[in-house]
Design a protein around this nucleic acid. Structure first.
Length: 454
DNA sequence: ATCGGCTCGCGCAA
DNA sequence: TGCGCGAAGCCGAT
């Protein structure tokens, strides 16, 4: 099976040469079920040339810490081993991609570079700079979305309900099985040596954050998926919004780092006919429609993390309420240290800091309260994204951006009845949480600070 | 326990 | 041009 051309686009319109093909692995850090790697191999087979994979390391100011990089490197260790078995060399290049990849391409007379897709601006800037610097074609393959982002819709969608029919129309064509990645037949002239991952980590001089219990890598991800489907999918629609139950999939760290393919997850869940139909539909709605809507938003809205990027009605109502008196105001540090007056909010913050993952329902309450307790929406967005991207294993992802923007700025939401501070942005409160689940059990479980806080 | 109103605008039917 | 309905709610009435 060939890779669908609608998944592929050139970033610089330069010709591919006859030399080896390189897959620049970035967002999709896996060997299996990876359309970008499959496409690179397809081109290498056509031209009868070697294939290799590179990973570019670069510390981006204010992003990434030991928690996230350790998880990523543990996944990449598995990638390195699996590729070696398939006669595909793996390299880590340290520095700016437009410089180090261009040098690599010239040294090895590479014919084409293939990269995966990421709509976030800092990732797009690297791809664009590299596309401009390379003497050969830089090809982008959307290996993250089931329906390629630019194919699913050609504009920023207003809400999930405008995106959903487009997704359901295109899905039968794209929700396919994956071909198996076979060993590469053309002998490589690349000289590799085992990667010293500890050295990579120290080179980046990252902020130290406590590790989590999540085990990284493709094998762990597949195990998590099969456990979820066999034991929790059946009741997903009933338990997913209760933070005291283990009802969610727990797959988002793997999906974020691309250690697991969303298409693989959707394919397995869709075919798990032995399980409840409502549960499967609820899960697929979140996995496909809402997850891919997040990529759509970041891809088409250049102000995706700004209050100015929100709907017109939301900006109007925010402006009208900017001078409303806030009963509580906290600094970034007070939020970070879980020092608010709200024991439920503090417990959510502590769950995130300690486990690297906050429950999906809590993320909404948590972000809306930051809006309520800061001077304005932009300050709230900045604090929410700072904390999300620092502590969540699935931080620095379009899903996190949309979660925060939905909560604080009404992105993909509609207007509700007007009230102080929030204006027409949907309001959530402590009483609502109380109605929904056993908040005492939740606070008993997460509300106490452990050794992380001295 | 359940229901309607709140409030905006997209996209489709007509 | 009219109308149905939506990313997870709140509140007060019944």
């Amino acid at each position: 099976m060939k890779v669908d051309e609608r998944r592929v686009r050139s970033l610089n319109d330069r010709a591919a040469g006859g030399g080896p093909v390189v897959y620049w692995m970035s967002r999709d850090q896996r060997v299996n079920d990876n359309w970008a790697l499959l496409y690179a191999r397809e081109k290498a087979i056509e031209r009868k040339v070697p294939l290799c994979v590179i990973f570019n390391l670069l510390k981006i100011e204010g992003r990434g810490n030991t928690r996230q990089y350790r998880f990523m490197f543990n996944g990449l260790k598995e990638v390195e081993k699996a590729l070696a078995q398939l006669n595909i060399p793996f390299f880590v290049l340290y520095g700016k991609s437009e410089e180090v990849i261009t040098t690599f391409v010239k040294t090895h007379q590479v014919g084409e570079v293939v990269v995966d897709f990421n709509p976030l601006l800092y990732a797009r800037q690297r791809r664009e700079a590299t596309a401009a610097a390379l003497p050969i074609r830089l090809t982008e393959v959307d290996a993250h979305n089931i329906i390629p982002c630019w194919h699913a819709s050609d504009k920023e969608e207003f809400a999930a309900y405008t995106f959903r029919p487009k997704v359901h129309r295109a899905l039968p064509e794209f929700l396919t099985a994956f071909p198996k990645l076979e060993s590469h037949p053309y002998k490589s002239e690349f000289k590799t040596k085992p990667i010293d991952w500890d050295e990579c980590l120290s080179k980046l001089s990252l902020e130290e954050i406590l590790n989590t219990n999540f085990i990284a890598g493709e094998t762990a991800a597949k195990k998590q998926l099969s456990t979820f489907i066999s034991s929790r999918l059946d009741s997903y629609h009933e338990t997913r919004n209760d933070p005291t139950q283990n009802g969610v999939s727990g797959l988002s760290p793997y999906l974020h780092f691309g250690q697991l393919s969303a298409q693989r997850v959707a394919y397995e869940a869709n075919n798990a006919f032995e399980h409840n139909k409502d549960a499967r539909e609820a899960f697929l709605e979140e996995l496909i429609v809402r997850r891919e809507l997040a990529d759509n938003y970041c891809f088409y809205n250049k102000q995706y993390d700004q209050a100015a990027g929100a709907h017109a009605w939301a900006q109007k109502t925010m402006a009208e309420h900017k001078d409303d008196v806030r009963e509580y105001l906290y600094t970034k540090e007070q939020f970070e240290n879980a020092e608010t007056h709200d024991d439920l909010w503090n417990a959510m913050q502590l769950q995130m800091v300690e486990e690297g993952k906050m429950h999906g329902w809590c993320r909404m309450y948590w972000a809306k309260k930051i809006l309520e307790w800061t001077p304005d929406a932009q300050a709230a967005i900045n604090i929410a994204l700072y904390l999300n991207d620092k502590y969540e294993l699935d931080g620095n992802d379009p899903n996190g951006v949309v979660g925060v923007m939905w909560s604080i700025c009404g992105v993909h939401d509609r207007a509700w009845n007007e009230r102080p501070i929030f204006g027409k942005i949907r309001y959530m409160n402590y009483a609502g949480a109380k109605r929904k689940f056993d908040i005492k059990a939740y606070i008993d479980r997460y509300g106490k600070k452990n050794t992380l806080f001295k």
